[in-house]
């Protein structure tokens, strides 16, 4: 089993890598196309800004690499958002895997970013095997993805939004499983077993 974490100019690579270590997975951190393509499981992390992250991915042709993947890939936080069509953050055209746009939370009604532990509900797919409805996960984000046919978990923060997405081999979570206690760890384990 080979697990690769995609390395690019967005943070939390080390916290994801440490979280995998805690479940006995020694992941390779790489931006090399061949390494990524040859992996059994790929994690696409991300804490940062959409525009500069997409620029970096395009310059290094990582956008094409991600599109070409047929094995399970999990986008986390910004990683998930970058898998959508377009993000209001920096008016950025993204990877277009999920036919969805990424929108800013309404600033007048809510504290933005949403920071903290919120519940995930309407859980679908084996990514959430053994996870109970209304389990808490840790989120930090200012932008969100609306509910759609891709939604496999939802969360409410003023509005209900997609806290996880799936299409074929592509998975994305808005929350941070690597920082969400035992339940987050279980979700990472589930992904590795997909």
């Amino acid at each position: 089993m080979k697990t690769v974490i995609i390395k690019y100019n967005a943070g939390n690579v080390s916290s994801v890598s440490f979280a995998l270590e805690r479940i006995g997975i020694n992941a390779l951190i790489s931006e090399n196309a061949e390494e990524i393509k040859s992996a059994d499981k790929i994690i696409f992390p991300g804490v940062g800004e959409a525009g500069s992250a997409m620029n970096y991915l395009r310059q290094n042709k990582l956008d094409e690499v991600i599109h070409s993947l047929t094995q399970p890939i999990l986008g986390i936080c910004l990683g998930m958002q970058l898998m959508c069509n377009y993000s209001e953050e920096g008016k950025t055209n993204c990877l277009g895997i999920f036919d969805q746009n990424v929108k800013l939370f309404p600033l007048s009604e809510l504290k933005v970013p949403q920071v903290g532990w919120n519940t995930i509900t309407d859980l679908k797919t084996n990514l959430f095997s053994g996870i109970i409805e209304n389990e808490y996960q840790y989120l930090v984000h200012s932008y969100y993805v609306e509910l759609s046919a891709y939604t496999i978990a939802q969360t409410n923060y003023g509005i209900s939004f997609s806290s996880a997405l799936n299409k074929n081999n592509f998975y994305g979570v808005q929350f941070h499983p690597e920082r969400s206690g035992a339940a987050g760890q279980k979700i990472l384990e589930n992904f590795i077993k997909l």
Partner: peptide
């Protein structure tokens, strides 16, 4: 910080 991040699963 690195040791904490390695071993702690909350923010």
């Amino acid at each position: 910080v690195s040791r904490i991040s390695r071993q702690v699963n909350i923010p």
